[in-house]
């Protein structure tokens, strides 16, 4: 997918929120949706089960308007976290320009986090994408839960952040850290644009 089209002067960025089930990916998108002025957001498509689990994926298009003469669009996706939806995850991951990995900070979810991270890598490799070259940030969500239930950002870094990518503490329900995460991901994605430019 062409990220920057200089002829039509368009920038389109696809950022995928990845992570285990119930880690708060959709919550991230919902919070963002709530903060975007009406004229800037498209319809948020959310296909959820009755128990509020993402069945297919969430899709939030953001129209950022003209930036430096480029019509800029962000497309935010989430993948279904549950293990058995891998085919959907692969589909959503295709053509992603950046990935936000939303980890569940709860100590008992550590294995799920690791498993999801491995799944992400496996899927990226399968698509021939070098995971280290992919704009990538980590979000440690649910940091507002009681201390004894969760792992600290340092501990999570130790367990998950082996590429030393930017990581953010968050409490997506309250919105803490949501935009910080998005900003960091966007910045990395946009920075990659210039690197992708033939030197």
């Amino acid at each position: 997918m062409s990220l920057v089209n200089f002829t039509t002067r368009e920038i389109t960025c696809k950022i995928v929120y990845y992570g285990p089930g119930r880690s708060g990916k959709t919550t991230n998108l919902q919070y963002i949706y709530g903060r975007v002025p009406d004229n800037r957001r498209g319809r948020m498509v959310s296909l959820a089960t009755q128990t509020d689990r993402t069945l297919f994926f969430d899709f939030l298009p953001l129209e950022l308007g003209s930036i430096s003469g480029f019509t800029t669009r962000f497309q935010l996706y989430t993948v279904p976290g549950q293990v058995y939806y891998n085919a959907t995850r692969k589909l959503v991951l295709q053509g992603a320009d950046g990935v936000v990995f939303v980890a569940d900070s709860q100590a008992r979810q550590l294995d799920e986090n690791i498993e999801s991270m491995q799944n992400l890598q496996a899927n990226l490799i399968e698509q021939g994408v070098d995971a280290r070259a992919m704009p990538f940030v980590l979000q440690y969500n649910k940091q507002d839960l009681p201390r004894d239930l969760i792992l600290s950002p340092d501990e999570l870094n130790e367990a998950l952040n082996f590429w030393d990518v930017p990581s953010f503490s968050a409490a997506a329900l309250k919105g803490t850290g949501v935009f910080e995460t998005l900003k960091a991901a966007s910045e990395q994605v946009l920075r990659k644009l210039s690197q992708g430019e033939p030197a």
């Binding site: 903060r35 962000f74 935009f179 900003k183 946009l190």
Partner: peptide, 17 residues
């Protein structure tokens, strides 16, 4: 927060793209 995000993106686009 959105405006903040927007200006951030603007900055990066101007600088990078």
């Amino acid at each position: 927060e959105f405006a903040d995000f927007l200006s951030d993106v603007e900055h990066t686009v101007t600088e990078q793209v």
